[in-house]
Design a protein around this nucleic acid. Structure first.
Length: 935
RNA sequence: GCGGCAUUGGCGGAAUUGGUAGACGCGCCAGACUUAGGAUCUGGUUCCCAAAGAGUGAAGGUUCGAGUCCUUUAUGCCGCACCA
């Protein structure tokens, strides 16, 4: 019977659905295992073949774990808040909720077709009030908490208030507003004035990557730097724990390294420098305390609060002009333009070691947000300081023996100190240590660890996001009571910002909080006693994605984000699969969010994802036709790719993207091409064999006339006509072929182009396999059949455990080949192969399982165990490392058989000595000379 | 500049602990079947080929033995980047 994948796949998907085969319970005798995909943002374009790569991998692992007897949580949901839906809403007036729901419906349909074992009953959507209830709840808790540095954990803000009351006599004299302002400096979620890119025309804050050369990428409107009152999360408080936590989790080294870079720990010292003529010193941060003797000037960031103190009257005009220039430059421009700029403040600092007077400058190469926003400049040993010193003709004093600083600075931390007083003769590393001790002893500084990690700006001037559960009284924010959550997103008349520059929520009529009735009311009623304005910003994209994995554990719970029972059962995500692009975003925020909830006692694990795998990206593989543009060109002639370097066509052709869906194995479907677009209706060709239909045009093409297309690997995008929709692949080959082929493309973690030329191969394999299942019989399998099967069991088990899914497909092919040449039709063998195949190609496996008399669903079967006994005698080698004592060389003739060699080895005098009477477990002979003996 | 990853036939890629490099698929070649083929089946396919030999980006090293480990280097991809 023919392999009718359409019928098989539809049938079994319906059966699974009917039987709720993938429903997961929180009560089970089985051990829990949690496999998670990074949930998608449901874009209007739908899924392309790149999206399911990670999902297929996690599905394979989930099914495998389930076959091994685990209770596997494998959910899916949607990161439903986001910019594209909102932008679409502004353009079309359609409510983002409507388009988002449409997109989600489409995603679910596409995902279902691929046959994932998701428990759809646990689906979450970040835009559902039931879900963002807990996003708001967590934010509220962050507002009501502070980070206790000594205990290294978040604590309720009441504890801080109690401490202030006890230790600070002035606390009780402060007004409520003053107290609130003080507490704001400690809260985990806090409101502060932060510098942002503001685009007046669009009426919104833009992220750095949305701004180019001072203009908005979208629309090209001017962008200015503006300080705005914004919510932030104190992620930086967790920097040390976020860094240490990396050592406890099983992530790839490169991803951990990216996060370590991002957190950016650096050990150094803070030092005080006196300003000539002033009593108050100012503080700098340095990692090179050893170089104090070579400080020849100081530099402040333009935004530094020290600036106002040190500018002299004579320099004021010049400084202000410089600051004004800096203000109008975006972060991006400042980085792009590395020309040295700066201005002298007129003041001098005193070097605490040499007592020299050194000038204080302002320059934008010093960042206000790192360290103290001020540095001591050591031009001899820092390339940036060096460039500055050269530009302003400042002295350069070398401090390391033999360092040549006539052309460039010597930045390496090695060598012997010179010109450095008591440090002279020391190695740099020792000198750093010695100087740190010195400054602590003298009270001019202290050892300090700095982190580059910044707090996360948490406000967005958008509509389509979680509303803050916040109202404002006397200019200070207050949280809504816990029992009033969720605060639902209000309807608005317009999704654009208001005329006076407020976020879209400014359009909402019912957007004020009545503290008496604890209800949302008409904002016209706002008074100063009981009715207050609500926050107009919404939360950013990462808010909803930071704790969604916890919600899957208990998604129906209306009393808590997750019940302690559910959380203690599932504990954490055992395997998380997703793209590496979230390394410094979602994966930092999630870890932060989880650690906060851990401090609050809400979750029982400090790290959310114990193992993480990054699937590579699937790039597009574009195809080209080559239009002839040489002499006599009609613009209607296309040259086959293999001919374009011929002299007559060289440099006379123009590559044109052609829809990859009408190209098969780089051969153009001529008729489809002519029908693709009107301009190709009468296209003519020079075929691969050099023949042409120019003079003899006809409709339809003889088979031997092949037009070969060129190709290139590019990003998968509509404009390059290289987007491949999984639905099309499934229609043509089936979901099982798609799943197998995506895995077969190459290692999971690597990026690779989508190249359909191999899909026929895996589809053929499934067909052949299906035909093997024609007439299974209940008879005793032969030893050879069992050997083939157990080789496969061993291989597939190893592959899945090690996420080496790509190498499983060849193993299946080999087994199929071996068994079919053995004419194997034993139900017992075929049934086990169906189980092995079930993670990869669940539909066909299910059908085969039943054909061989399997009961229930194949997913409820037991994973087969390899019996090594079947593998012993067929010459399969298991290379075994031997320790130093066992290593020796025998020269043996090549013609000896395996048995003879073994005999020769065992009777050899050296062997006897080494063995000392023990019996070897295995003797491995590599033809030629080398012998390994395993004890 | 700093950090990470990669480099194996015409192509995608195997080689699991240092142990017979090139599995498997695509493509290509030959054959079978066929009125026809974007069908199916069989055999071949690293290079040079009569044989011998050479061979995992390059050069060294460790080892009885290296695609795998070490050093240097080249190229490509990715991340971070005026972070003191």
């Amino acid at each position: 019977m023919e392999y009718n994948f359409q019928e098989i796949e539809q049938h079994w998907q319906e059966e699974w659905e009917k039987a709720q085969a993938y429903r997961v319970s929180n009560q089970s005798e089985r051990k829990p295992f949690y496999v998670l995909d990074m949930f998608p943002y449901p874009s209007g374009a739908g899924l392309h073949v790149g999206h399911p790569l990670g999902y297929i991998a996690s599905d394979i692992y989930s099914r495998y774990k389930r076959l091994q007897g685990f209770n596997v949580l494998h959910p899916m949901g949607f990161d439903a808040y986001g910019l594209p839906a909102e932008q679409y809403a502004i353009q079309t007036g359609q409510h983002p909720e409507k388009t988002t729901n449409q997109n989600i419906a489409r995603y679910i349909e596409q995902l279902r077709k691929i046959g994932f074992c998701y428990d759809w009953d646990r689906m979450v959507r970040t835009c559902d009030p039931d879900f963002y209830h807990w996003t708001q709840w967590a934010f509220r808790k962050m507002f009501l908490s502070y980070y206790d540095e000594t205990r290294q954990q978040a604590r309720p803000i009441e504890e801080l208030v109690a401490r202030f009351e006890k230790e600070d006599p002035t606390w009780n004299t402060l007004s409520e507003k003053e107290q609130q302002e003080r507490l704001m400096q400690y809260r985990i979620a806090y409101l502060s004035d932060t510098k942002v890119n503001w685009c007046p025309e669009l009426g919104t804050v833009l992220a750095n990557d949305e701004v180019s050369e001072g203009l908005s990428v979208r629309g090209g409107f001017p962008v200015e730097q503006r300080v705005m009152r914004q919510w932030s999360l104190r992620v930086s408080a967790y920097a040390a724990r976020l860094l240490e936590g990396l050592d406890k989790i099983d992530w790839t080294e490169s991803l951990k390294e990216t996060q370590r870079n991002w957190i950016g720990r650096s050990e150094g010292a803070e030092m005080q420098f006196r300003i000539k003529g002033q009593d108050e010193p100012f503080t700098i941060f340095t990692t090179r305390a050893d170089t104090v003797f070579g400080v020849t000037f100081m530099v402040l960031a333009p935004e530094s609060e020290y600036v106002a103190r040190v500018v002299t009257e004579e320099q004021r005009a010049e400084v202000e002009a410089y600051l004004d220039r800096c203000k109008h430059r975006t972060e991006r421009e400042r980085i792009a333009d590395r020309r040295v700029t700066g201005v002298f403040t007129g003041s001098y600092a005193i070097n605490p070691l040499t007592q020299n007077e050194i000038p204080i400058y302002i320059s934008d190469y010093v960042l206000a947000g790192y360290g103290t926003g001020a540095i001591m400049a050591v031009p001899a040993h820092d390339s940036r300081d060096y460039a500055f010193a050269r530009h302003f003709n400042l002295p350069i004093i070398p401090l390391i023996e033999g360092a040549d600083v006539s052309e460039q600075s010597f930045d390496a931390k090695e060598g012997k100190m010179v010109n450095s007083g008591f440090l002279n003769g020391m190695e740099v590393k020792d000198a750093i240590r010695a100087m740190k001790q010195y400054i602590e002893k003298e009270g001019i500084g202290r050892v300090k660890v700095n982190y580059r990690l910044r707090d996360a700006i948490f406000s967005r001037q958008r509509y389509w996001g979680e509303p803050f559960p916040v109202y404002y009284k006397d200019g200070m924010p207050y949280m809504l009571p816990e029992e009033c959550l969720p605060l639902e997103l209000p309807e608005v008349s317009d999704f654009k910002p208001t005329k006076d520059g407020q976020p879209p929520l400014g359009h909402a009529q019912y957007w004020a909080w009545n503290t008496e009735t604890q209800q949302v009311v008409d904002k016209a009623l706002i008074d100063e006693k009981t009715i207050f304005p609500l926050e107009l910003c919404t939360m950013p994209g990462f808010a909803g994605s930071s704790a969604y994995y916890l919600r899957y554990m208990d998604n129906k719970n209306t009393d808590a984000l997750v019940s302690p029972q559910a959380n203690q059962y599932w504990r954490q995500v055992n395997l998380y699969i997703g793209g590496t692009e979230h390394a410094t975003g979602h994966l930092i925020y999630s870890r932060f969010w989880n650690k906060f909830l851990f401090d609050m006692g809400v979750v029982c694990e400090d790290e959310p994802f114990s193992k993480l795998i990054n699937q590579g990206m699937i790039q597009g593989r574009s195809n080209f036709v080559y239009r002839y543009i040489g002499e006599g060109s009609t613009g209607n002639l296309y040259i086959s790719y293999n001919l374009i370097d011929n002299p007559e066509y060289k440099d006379k052709v123009q590559p044109i993207h052609v829809n990859v869906n009408i190209v098969h194995n780089d051969i153009l479907d001529i008729d489809a091409f002519r029908n693709w677009m009107p301009e190709y209706k009468n296209a003519q060709f020079v075929y691969a064999d050099g023949t042409t239909d120019v003079d003899n045009p006809y409709i339809g093409t003889p088979a031997e006339k092949q037009y070969i297309c060129g190709w290139a690997v590019e990003k998968m995008s509509k404009s390059m006509f290289n987007v491949v929709n999984p639905d099309d692949v499934i229609a043509k080959y089936g979901a099982d072929s798609l799943r197998l082929f995506e895995m077969f493309l190459g290692p999971l973690e690597m990026s690779k182009p989508w190249d359909t030329s191999g899909i026929d191969g895996v589809h053929r394999f499934l067909k052949k396999l299906w035909n093997m299942y024609e007439a299974p019989i209940d008879a005793e399998p032969t030893r050879e059949e069992l050997r083939s099967l157990h080789k496969l069991i061993k291989k597939i088990t190893w592959d899945i455990e090690n996420f080496s899914f790509n190498t499983s497909i060849p193993a299946f092919m080999i087994a199929q080949n071996e068994l079919s040449s053995l004419k194997c039709n034993k139900a017992a063998v075929l049934r086990e192969i169906a189980v092995l195949l079930a993670p990869y190609a669940p539909h066909i496996a299910e059908a085969m399982w039943h054909k061989c008399g399997g009961e229930g669903f194949v997913i409820d079967a037991e994973w087969p165990v390899c019996n090594e006994a079947y593998l012993e005698e067929d010459g399969v080698k298991y290379p075994v490392q031997f320790n130093g004592k066992m290593r020796f060389v025998l020269t043996l003739p090549k013609t000896m058989s395996k048995e003879e060699v073994e005999q020769a080895v065992l009777s050899n005098a050296d062997t006897q000595k080494v063995l000392a009477g023990a019996t070897p477990k295995r003797v491995i002979v590599v033809p030629g000379k080398i012998v390994n003996i395993v004890l």
